[in-house]
Structure formats: C-alpha cells, structure tokens
C-alpha cells in the first residue's frame, strides 16, 4: 500500500482523522471530548495526535476555560486534504466509487 499516506494509514490515526473530519472546517474538539468520542486512553490519543501534528495534519490550540487549561484540536487544511486524498486512494484501491 505504498500509495496510502502512512501518517493516516494506522488504525488509531485513521480513527482520529475520521472523527475530526466529521466537524465543519474551523470547528475544533477539546481533548477530553475527543478522547470520549474515540474511547481511547489519554496517553494513546496524545501519542498519535503528536504524530499527526508533526505531519501538519492537525491544528492544536491551547486555551483556558476559567482556570482550567483546555487543548482544542481540529484538522488543518493540509490534514483535511490528506484525509480526502486517503479516502480517495483507499476507494480506488478497493475499486469502489462511493
């Protein structure tokens, strides 16, 4: 599967990008909510998010809700395009159009 983007082509990172792609561009999800939606451990999620961030696929924004720090995550433009390309490649590999 040389054509499939290796950053996304791993179970955890595919699940993360797929979940973030359900939101409109510009919308972001707080780390604890994303963890809940994905049912992943905080450490596991954090590790894979770091790989996605290193590739420039996600935007990470640290903010505060009252006095509590909150990290918001969203797909970057590059990430959204990479996810769409990944889906397209996957479907062409499988010979499906939908």
């Amino acid at each position: 599967m040389a054509d499939l983007d290796p950053v996304i082509h791993a179970q955890a990172r595919l699940r993360i990008t797929a979940a973030l792609a359900t939101r409109e561009p510009g919308e972001s999800i707080a780390f604890p909510r994303l963890q809940e939606l994905l049912d992943m451990t905080a450490g596991n999620l954090s590790t894979h998010l770091r790989k996605l961030e290193d590739a420039g696929y996600i935007d990470v924004e640290k903010s505060h809700k009252g006095r509590t720090p909150v990290t918001y995550l969203s797909l970057s433009k590059t990430g959204r395009r990479a996810f769409e390309d990944y889906m397209e490649t996957l479907r062409s590999v499988l010979g499906t159009t939908s």
């Binding site: 599967m1 499939l4 082509h9 791993a10 179970q11 955890a12 990172r13 707080a30 780390f31 604890p32 992943m40 451990t41 905080a42 450490g43 596991n44 999620l45 954090s46 590790t47 894979h48 998010l49 720090p69 909150v70 990290t71 996957l90 590999v93 499988l94």
Partner: peptide
Amino acid sequence: HDTGGAAPADHDIDHDDEPLAPE
C-alpha cells in the same frame, strides 16, 4: 495535552499503529 498525567498504554499504541487490510 490535558492528559492528567496518564501514561501511554503501550499495548494499545503498538496495536493501533498498524494498518489493516484496505477494506
């Protein structure tokens, strides 16, 4: 991240880092 200091679950990472068949 706001991990609350949770340690990564190594087993999960090893497993989740692998791709499955395309379908």
